[in-house]
Design a protein around this nucleic acid. Structure first.
Lengths: 154, 154
DNA sequence: GTTGAAATAAACCACAA
DNA sequence: TTGTGGTTTATTTCAAC
């Protein structure tokens, strides 16, 4: 996992359709070498998958909200209950007063309300606190190149 | 934007390296027709880009936090100030007591603290409230197929 | 939308540093 | 162990229908 790997990752984050020849050129390697490095990054799980970034609004999911879920019990093995709600795109166990933080995308605020209803149906859920996003400044991949994030010690 | 487009999108979200021949087979189309539909989805901006999903921990960014940023002024055109902090992977203007909600990835909690310092340096920022994620249950793409999210009226 | 052919890229390999 | 260059295989891309 050196600087070249990070540059390959950054290039693939920008555009994963880039040909290996062009990818190699960008980092000073042959197509074959670039291919081999990317293959290993996938094999090691550094690159989890190749996917497409879709505009949620185009799929009719223009409403974005973050919901703090408070619970009366340990929520550590409730992942499946949250995953069963398709409108939830992220779920994290958090430190602090709430127990789980979920990110929700729906078409309308009525549907958001219905998601809250289904959240309350989860065993141990005591309350919810929803925060609606008015505008998304940006959503971007984790920085592969930022120096402050990649101490030399690693 | 019909059911076939949604199925193509769902397949590409799962694995964007799928060949058009296999993609077409999955939705009952020839490779050429599948290719043409995907090309149009890209052109219309429904599919924004093809990218790779990278494990943040493998990049040495194992700490995830959500930070509510309170402000004393309108933050609506401060997107650039937030984007200038590379550890911020998402920034949303929100309704409620705080003004902006940001998602932050760092290597250590010390670096998280440094991000908070840089947030305070942004014009108009009055306070921050950080919530650290203890465990991520899941992070997944927006649902392309869920019926509740795609009313027939659209 | 389909089929089929040409252009292009991916995957694989033997060899070299 | 990692990279190079060439060969084979597969896919993308672009016709004509």
């Amino acid at each position: 996992m050196d600087e070249t790997d990070r540059r390959l990752i950054a290039a693939l984050q920008r555009d994963a359709t880039t040909a290996y020849a062009a990818l190699g050129k960008e980092v000073g390697l042959s197509a074959g070498a670039a291919h081999e490095r990317v293959r290993k990054l996938r094999e090691r799980g550094v690159i989890r998958r190749t996917t497409v970034d879709v505009d949620p609004a185009a799929l009719g999911q223009g409403v974005l909200a973050f919901v703090m879920v408070e619970s009366s019990a340990w929520m550590g093995d409730s992942a499946d209950a949250f995953a069963a709600i398709p409108e939830i795109v992220e779920a994290h166990v958090i430190a602090g007063s709430a127990s789980v933080l979920v990110k929700v995308r729906t078409a309308t605020t009525e549907q958001l309300q219905d998601v809250l209803r289904r959240l309350y149906a989860i065993e141990g859920v005591r309350g919810t606190q929803a925060t609606v996003s008015l505008e998304t400044f940006f959503e971007r991949p984790v920085a592969a190149l930022d120096p402050s994030a990649t101490p030399k010690a690693l």
